[in-house]
Amino acid sequence: MAERIKVMIIDDSAVVRQVVTQALAADSGIEVVGAASDPVFAMSRMQTVWPDVIILDIEMPRMDGITFLKKLMAERPTPTIICSSLAERGASATFAALEAGAVSVITKPKLGLKSFLEDSANDIVQAVRSAARANPRVLSAVRKPVAVAAAPSERNLALERTTDQVIAIGTSTGGTIALESVLTQLPATTLGIVIVQHMPAMFTAMFSERLNDLCQIEVREARHGDRVIPGRALIAPGGKHMTLRRNGAQYVVDVADGPLINRHKPSVDVLFRSVAKIAGANALGIIMTGMGDDGARGMREMHDAGARTIAQDEASCVVFGMPKEAIKLGAVDQVIPLDQIPAAIIGHSARHLKGDS
């Protein structure tokens, strides 16, 4: 019998501790080994039984979650899920926690907390199962971006150009930091990029704004009808699907509601399939760290349509699920570590913006 996933819950809300414990107890493969109101209490409990996964609040008495997380990642990296409010202040802190090494986020409202958590029981279980597969070595190696954003004039020059080429990126667990490490290294003349990052609604706008401040390229949350042009990256909004289509000689994106695909909205498969159909061989597809198989079949369609396809390698992934499934389907031309992906994008962009094949 497989060993159960041991979970520690650290949250100053008794309601959160109770409801999350009940949700996880319903899964026979998960065991809650402790629940504490703050990290100081938790650390004493964890010395007896160290958890495989930690569910962590941010604002708590005696020690806040981000301080605890940084200490944890420096001393004993452990997959950690942030349980955060959707409020703007909480969202900002959540990105700081992701930068510090958190695997993913469970969002919680200020009102109706108990019923929300009860309705989200399956999502909480899946988040724990995903986190348990995370690579602690990668979590402890999170690095801050070093790129400096381009001046507006440089961005405007890039945006005046158009191209038949498009780059499509799909990622999930661990993807926020992976995307940051890639996008911050791209020049303003990079081909147009469309991205699906599995992320709750309301977080994608802040995530895009954060990246836009750090990057030489323009990064923004996609809006229906946005053009895909060099120097711009469009990130699918949380809770919406994004697809590529032609508008005359230009690529644009459609942003629309729809059913969950592979348990996700936005779905990488939805984006990749549209890119395969609309751009075909004029595309570069990249699948990065993430749990599950979303994007694998869409990447196979891109590959079969003649697109070049790349997967992030296992050693640099927080979770190797999505790239692994794409590789198994024969959808991937090249498997490379995360730190080589920017160079692959830059080289591909340089060839095609010069008109080379």
Rank of each mutant, 00 (worst) to 15 (best):
V40Q: 11
S84H: 09
A134R: 04
P259N: 09
P230F: 00
V270D: 08
T204H: 04
P79V: 01
V146W: 14
I310P: 05
I66M: 05
A74Q: 15
A150Q: 07
S357V: 15
I193V: 07
M206A: 10
T67H: 08
V253E: 01
P79Q: 02
K110E: 10
G280E: 02
A307T: 03
N122I: 06
L111Y: 05
L353P: 06
A233R: 09
A14Q: 08
V32I: 06
A311N: 07
A74H: 15
E209M: 14
F203W: 02
A158D: 07
H348V: 00
P266A: 02
E314L: 10
A87K: 14
I30F: 14
L139W: 01
G238F: 03
A131C: 01
V33P: 01
T176F: 07
A168F: 09
E160L: 15
V182R: 14
V166P: 00
D123R: 03
L69K: 14
V319H: 05
P109C: 02
S130T: 12
I229N: 08
T176Y: 06
G290M: 04
R137E: 04
S153C: 08
S153T: 11
I82S: 08
A102R: 03
R155C: 11
R300Y: 01
V128I: 10
P39I: 07
S37W: 05
G112A: 02
Q47W: 04
S181I: 11
V182L: 10
